[in-house]
């Protein structure tokens, strides 16, 4: 092999090594991330040359009905949030309780138990802890479903507290007036007492609150409250007005 051939072979070998290294770098996670970042910046760079049209997406509805009706509607639509939050806190607390505190404390208790404690007691406590853990996992899974599924979490809390001293007529009048709070509408301010029972159509973008569009009784069923000051409509309970077939 002459000098020219040897040099050529070395060059080939070097090229192969470089390609292998580049290939390995490209296949590794860091290499991929770098590649993506450069692609991301490249896209943004091309977009930076042309900005989007300002306000190209606009809220379509700009009609302005009366303010009180709108506020009631907004309140109505907002209420699922708190329950979602409470559900999340409940899930976290339960998970924390079971997975961390209970298990740790049971273990600590078993460690601190007298040496002569019978194996039966230990076994019983261990099995209780195990059963608790299983329950926790099952409940956590159920909560996770409840939180992620808007049908299960968007439970409806509606106004239905009534003064027990009210006369039937006064109560009926008030419930009719408050009936606006218990049914969502597709557009704020498009209904009044006269069209309440006939004009409602489900708004699919607002999930479960719109699933029940049956004509509403002006005299809802009420039950005595617990504090002597009021009564609750059973539909006003968290999750009260939901399609139970969809619940976990």
């Amino acid at each position: 092999m002459n000098t020219h051939e040897a040099l050529f072979m070395r060059l080939l070998l070097a090229a192969f090594i470089l390609l292998s290294v580049a290939r390995q770098a490209g296949s590794s996670s860091d290499g991929r991330t770098q590649r993506y970042t450069s692609l991301w910046l490249r896209q943004a760079g091309s977009d930076a040359a042309s900005l989007v049209e300002p306000g190209s997406v606009r809220a379509a509805r700009t009609d302005l009905p009366d303010r009180a009706a709108c506020t009631r509607h907004l309140l109505q639509q907002s209420q699922w949030t708190l329950l979602q939050r409470a559900g999340g806190a409940l899930r976290d607390a339960r998970r924390d309780l079971f997975r961390k505190r209970v298990r740790q404390r049971v273990r600590a208790h078993l460690r601190a138990a007298p040496a002569l404690e019978s194996a039966r007691v230990r076994l019983q406590r261990a099995s209780e802890a195990g059963a608790g853990r299983e329950t926790a996992d099952a409940l956590a899974a159920r909560d996770a479903r409840a939180v992620t599924d808007p049908v299960a979490t968007d439970t409806k809390l509606e106004l239905s507290v009534t003064a027990t001293e009210e006369t039937t007529a006064a109560r009926t009048t008030r419930l009719i007036a408050e009936g606006d709070l218990t049914r969502p509408c597709t557009s704020i301010g498009t209904r009044d007492a006269s069209d309440r029972n006939t004009e409602l159509t489900p708004d699919t973008s607002l999930d479960r609150d719109n699933t029940d569009v049956r004509p509403r009784n002006t005299e809802p069923t009420v039950r005595p409250g617990t504090d002597g000051t009021g009564t609750y409509d059973t539909d006003s309970a968290p999750g009260g007005n939901v399609d139970r077939r969809k619940l976990p």
Binding site: L90, A93, A146, R223, G225, T226, Y232
Partner: peptide
């Protein structure tokens, strides 16, 4: 007594 629902059942369980 007033809210016999899933949500309250969760609290009771907790």
């Amino acid at each position: 007594r007033v809210f016999s629902t899933e949500a309250v059942a969760h609290l009771v369980t907790l």
